[in-house]
């Protein structure tokens, strides 16, 4: 029996370690496709994928689009402004219409936690969560884990710090769930308002002092920090944030030489990460983007394709 029997990917919290490992191994097999001159396999030929993005996104949508094209699927992009949700149609009705248009796969980005699961329970199409509010962003979590595993050959026993706005971050949650299942030690770092101590109930460690953990970590994953729009009561300002939690040159110098610096993008140069450090030799930020294609190919193929990886 195959390890993977799901039609949807709505989150990493519900997956077993074996299922996560299966997706990572499948992604490794697909990564080679992007390194050929003919970057295409017929794995999803004849399948229709709808990128249904109710929240704006460029990089995730593009990554799914590239992944689908490399698998020979046909891709339709729908954005919030063009959708009937603006006209008062419910998410359920809009999605039923997409299914009636015979979409095999719906990639959903939506501001509501649980929205992907909501559709997955109601539609026959495969639903791939491309971010549901502050809940999960499973393909981002997988590509982060894939990148770490590619560099270290393992996840188990690694010390991984995730820094920033954890409370509102779907990227953080998917990383936490996936990394813990694979045996990593996860430390969340940030201001006490955005990284409340109660996160420790999930099995992670919480720290409010970035300087204390720099020397011990194998990976530091920096999340994008938002302030102007919605976080005014959570911390006083970006200047203070940088002074306490920014990965400055001085802080980066305390990292182990082997420590990876990651960021899901888009980065704020000079805020969560020093500009030179972002471009430095420890940074794998752009490799994450490339790996994202392979991971998304693996997810699309596993949920909507057949058995085994085509070569």
């Amino acid at each position: 029996m195959s390890t993977w029997t799901r039609k949807d990917l709505t989150g990493l919290d519900e997956l077993t370690a074996a299922e996560i490992t299966f997706l990572l191994d499948t992604a490794r097999a697909f990564k080679g496709v992007g390194e050929r001159s003919l970057k295409k396999v017929p794995a999803l030929r004849g399948k229709t994928l709808v990128n249904f993005f109710v929240e704006p996104s460029t990089r995730t949508r593009t990554s799914f689009e590239v992944a689908a094209m490399r698998l020979s699927a046909d891709v339709v992009n729908i954005s919030a402004t063009a959708s009937s949700l603006q006209k008062g149609e419910t998410l359920k009705d809009t999605a039923l219409n997409l299914q009636a248009l015979q979409a095999d796969i719906i990639v959903l980005r939506h501001s509501s936690p649980g929205s992907s699961r909501f559709l997955a329970e109601r539609l026959d199409s495969s639903i791939i969560n491309a971010g549901d509010g502050a809940h999960e962003h499973p393909t981002q979590g997988l590509l982060d884990i894939f990148t770490i595993r590619e560099k270290f050959g393992r996840i188990e026993g690694l010390n991984i710090a995730i820094v920033g706005d954890i409370l509102f971050s779907r990227v953080a949650r998917s990383n936490i769930f996936g990394l813990l299942k694979l045996g990593a030690n996860v430390t969340l770092v940030g201001p006490s308002t955005l990284v409340p101590k109660s996160f420790e109930k999930l099995g992670v460690r919480v720290s409010h002092r970035l300087d204390d953990i720099l020397a011990e970590v194998d990976v530091v994953n920096l999340l994008r920090i938002q302030h102007e729009r919605q976080r005014k009561e959570y911390f006083p300002g970006l200047g203070e944030y940088v002074s306490l939690f920014g990965l400055t040159k001085a802080r980066a110098a305390k990292l182990k030489p082997s420590c990876l610096i990651m960021h899901p993008g888009p980065i704020n140069r000079g805020v969560e990460i020093d500009s030179d450090i972002a471009d430095g030799h420890q940074s794998v930020i752009l490799e994450q983007v490339t790996n994202g294609i392979a991971v998304r190919m693996a997810v699309l193929y596993s949920c909507a394709g057949g058995a085994g990886v085509p070569t």
Binding site: P113, G114, G133, A134, E136, L167, R173, S198, K201, L202
Partner: peptide, 10 residues
Amino acid sequence: EGEWSLRLGL
């Protein structure tokens, strides 16, 4: 507000 709201992002 507790473990489950943190887990679910609600």
